[in-house]
Amino acid sequence: MLDIRVSRRQGSFQVNADFKTQNTGITALFGPSGAGKTSVINMVAGLIRPDRGRIVVQDRVLFDSDRGIDLPPEKRSIGYIFQDGRLFPHLTVRSNLIYGMRLTPPDRRCIGFDQVVGLLGIQHLLERRPARLSGGEKQRVAIGRALLTSPRLLLMDEPLSSLDEGRKEDVLPFVAKLPSAFSIPILYVTHAVDEIQRLADCLVLMESGKSIAAGNVHEMIGRIQCRVVVGVSDNPSLETC
């Protein structure tokens, strides 16, 4: 499903991520702030370029430095939900939602407008502008906008981190429903253990720019908690989830 091996130097910071997953649900990319998680998904989305490596999503090679392949973001069919929503302020919610849908060839569209709007509960917001939405509503619209491009993979970069504790429930249940409703795998960046417990099936652990372990969420969660307590680096070998 997802086969990522990338390295990139950013100033004095080196990002080395290497993991594979067959997971069709939510894979969490977990690690402390500054571990390079966002850099990794930006490379998957094509927003930044790895120095070396290979990115394969659903058997499609998006980037391969050896073969000189580097698809631009608009050709990757990858939905991206940013931490800060990034809705277009000059467009209504409806126009935001169909922005990417209209750019997707009709024969590739497999997700319907009404289905998305219904599932995310944003019917009553369609004619509003983003400035008049709450944080949770914005993120739901952002999820809908990405889904409507019928992507092969959804990237989520801490989509709840800009919300208040109470408002996270405005979004979290909707995220949990996505894999079964649309059968799109999700790579979910977070540093919150409770989000992983509620959402993720698989987990990739990152630290100081490196992916250091990957595996089933139930096996991994114990290791995370150990690491939090002990704070030592453990076995760097990576399993397949």
Binding site: G46, L47, I78, D84, R86, Y99, G100, T149
Partner: peptide, 18 residues
């Protein structure tokens, strides 16, 4: 203009000119 918005539009399938 927030370049993040431009990046978002790229991930939604828009070429730079669009």
């Amino acid at each position: 203009v927030d370049q993040g918005l431009e990046a978002a539009a790229r991930t939604l399938g828009a070429r730079p000119l669009r």
